[in-house]
Design a binder for these strands. Structure first.
Lengths: 192, 192
DNA sequence: AAACATCTAGAATCTATGCTCTAGATTATT
DNA sequence: AATAATCTAGAGCATAGATTCTAGATGTTT
């Protein structure tokens, strides 16, 4: 068997860099140029452009989830949720390529139009997160209602993401984590 | 002179509807189909696809600014800022097509790569808003620092936009305005 | 070293869409 | 009614970029 000159991860790294610069308008030719490969070699690893991008997205989301779940392990549910909120910002600051890659798709839409080979992975990628957020909602509020469930999601995920989004293609200001924590604290309090 | 069968606004309406459904992947052919025109008629009005989209963006932004500035006319600066924050959500709820169209571009990037015919309009479209926000920062805090200026922008604009963004392609929940007001109140308090 | 599997190469093809072009229709003006 | 200006029509062109194809290189196994 021949030795792989261009690895899957190497190609994804190049793709991430291109996504950081050109967003969803990445071109296969640019990715190929960046790794020093002809386009054919890209297609040897990935069935299509779409498949490549979905794999990139999956890899970045997994990397993020690791950090995100770690931040949510505190005993105190409020602290855990605020830690998760804050980690959204710090991850974006520390891993701008992954953050940009994650912005390529939103899971809900992706499940519907993804290459078959990725569908399962995409469908379940958020399961563990949802589970942990449910637990924390339970711990934080005692009785969980639909509104409280959504407040938790907004405080720990959607809100923080909204705050960093403007900085995805730029530098994250150092005071942003404090803003996110203040905001999420206020949002969680709406459930009391 | 011939009577225009397809008006500029009519074409933009169709484009907005298409943007709401397909985002920035709008195709000229779809817009044409929606107004019942051949593509040639579209190009009779707009020099290029880009120009059409920029005009659409400008129209939506202007519509939004009307509502946004009206919400910010209160004497009490805190009330004015929170009113503006809230109006971001209510406008999105009430005018989903315009909201989706506004998401096509971000001004900063657009100024750099816009057709010449639109550059001036794009460059100055936010001037009035920035002026009002400066005034309100002054009234709210007394002494204005860089951080306070940014807190105001985040509380009245970026933050609220982040909260509604997930609902741009969906329905805005009725409790979202309350979330935004709570969050923005907390953000503004960081400047005290 | 022969046979095999895998990977690289990059030119050639395919496709989707933006855009152009010219003929003719429509309405205002005189 | 004649003229002129503007607009519609939609087939066809142009281009960017994704994808395919096949020859050959490279390393692996026996």
């Amino acid at each position: 068997m021949a030795l792989a000159k261009f690895t899957t991860d190497g190609i994804l790294d190049a793709a991430a860099e291109e996504v950081r610069n050109h967003g969803s308008a990445v071109r296969i030719a640019s990715i190929a140029a960046r790794v020093g490969a002809p386009t054919g070699s890209i297609y040897h690893r990935f069935g299509s452009r779409e498949e490549l991008l979905v794999h990139l997205w999956l890899r970045s989301v997994r990397r993020f989830h690791e950090v995100y779940l770690a931040a949510g392990r505190s005993e105190d549910p409020e602290k855990a949720l605020l830690g998760m909120a804050e980690s959204v910002v710090t991850f974006t600051r520390d891993h701008p390529q992954d953050a940009a890659s994650m912005a390529l798709f939103r899971q809900k839409r992706l499940v519907e139009n993804t290459p078959d080979s990725c569908r399962e992975a995409v469908a379940h990628i958020n399961d563990e997160i949802h589970e942990r957020l449910s637990e924390l909602a339970q711990l934080r509020y005692g009785r969980v209602t639909e509104k409280r469930r959504q407040l938790v999601r907004i405080a720990a995920a959607d809100g923080p993401y909204g705050f960093v989004r403007p900085y995805l293609w730029d530098t994250v200001p150092e005071w942003l984590p404090a803003v996110v924590v203040a905001s999420s604290t206020a949002v969680l309090a709406l459930g009391d």
